[in-house]
């Protein structure tokens, strides 16, 4: 297991380790992980889609050699799917099997009150941890050596679910009515929440988290990211590609291309053995980076001027 504390000793070392895992990050991002590690606070990551929000959590897990538990949020997600559920089948089965044993227990008991009293002596066997089916959130708390918990796209979930998260985020514990409070084992999990900002996250949740906003990277950083992810792309092409993408982000598009699209594009161009950006080629591969027909049409109109500008 990697020495977690050594890696997280400073922001610089975090940056280097991220880089070793092919995740090029800014100071801001490394600082966020540093603080989250030392203050034991969840990070709420916001930013446009495709800038590496989920990737950050994955890479962190990889870097610290911790298991990653992921909870994908969606509308209608409730505690039965996120925290725990009783194993109803098992409960039913056991009651059937144990019917006879129950008879023995109740043997000789006179009257209703006495029977119930005897049953009470056995406690709440059917509502113990044996019959509990842990879901991602609880699993994360039960990991012995800590883990990385990724709660993805929290903005897709309902308000009620958000409020439910508050307990686990601030105290790393969950209250289950039948059993009591379950606390995190020695190491609390590192929690990452991501949001695409389709709706406002409540203040209560935000207050409990560090808030990291990942914007689109600048030209230099994006080139390094491409270099790390698709190292085979020749340098000149890489420069042209990234500049082209940055030009596109300046345009008025329905969905501007993100880093993930740049990476896809780089792979595409590599496959086509491209040396430099030709207008025709760009036109043919535009559908890799733009996801709306309207956007593609808009960009095609200005294609020549952009490519000329880039090739200088």
């Amino acid at each position: 297991m990697a020495d977690v504390n050594a890696i997280a000793a400073s922001v610089e070392s975090l940056k280097q380790h991220f880089e070793q895992h092919n995740y090029i990050c800014s100071d801001q991002i490394a600082t966020a992980v540093y603080l989250a590690f030392h203050l034991n606070k969840p990070i709420l990551i916001e930013g446009p889609p495709g800038v590496g929000k989920t990737e950050l959590a994955k890479t962190t897990a990889e870097m610290f050699a911790l298991p990653m538990i992921r909870l994908q949020c969606y509308e209608g997600l409730d505690e039965a799917k996120a925290i725990y559920e009783w194993k109803y089948g098992k409960q039913l089965l056991y009651t059937q099997v144990l019917k006879e044993a129950l008879d023995e227990v109740l043997d000789g008991a006179k009257g209703f009150t006495q029977s119930v009293k005897r049953l009470h002596e056995f406690g709440d066997i059917f509502f113990s941890e044996e019959f509990l089916e842990p879901r991602p959130l609880m699993k994360a708390l039960q990991e012995d050596d800590g883990c990385v918990l990724l709660i993805d796209e929290i903005d897709k979930s309902d308000h009620e679910f958000e409020s439910m998260l508050l307990e686990i985020l601030s105290d790393f514990q969950i209250s289950i009515p039948e059993i009591g409070t379950i606390k995190a084992n020695k190491e609390p999990p590192m929690v990452f929440l991501t949001s695409n900002n389709t709706r406002e996250i409540s203040d209560a949740l935000k207050r409990r988290c560090l808030h990291l906003y990942i914007p689109f990277p600048d030209i230099d950083l994006e080139q390094r990211i491409i270099h790390a992810r698709v190292p085979e792309v020749p340098e000149e092409l890489r420069r042209q590609m990234v500049e082209f993408i940055h030009e596109l982000r300046g345009l008025d598009l329905k969905k501007v291309p993100a880093i993930s699209e740049t990476i896809d594009w780089a792979r595409t161009l590599l496959l086509l053995h491209t040396e430099s950006l030709e207008p025709k080629l760009v036109k043919d591969t535009l559908n890799v980076i733009l996801k709306f027909q309207e956007d593609i049409e808009n960009v095609e109109a200005e294609l020549t001027s952009i490519t000329n500008k880039i090739r200088k």
Partner: peptide, 9 residues
């Protein structure tokens, strides 16, 4: 501090 205090872009 910018991670701790402000909470929107």
């Amino acid at each position: 501090l910018s991670l701790v205090l402000p909470k929107t872009a």
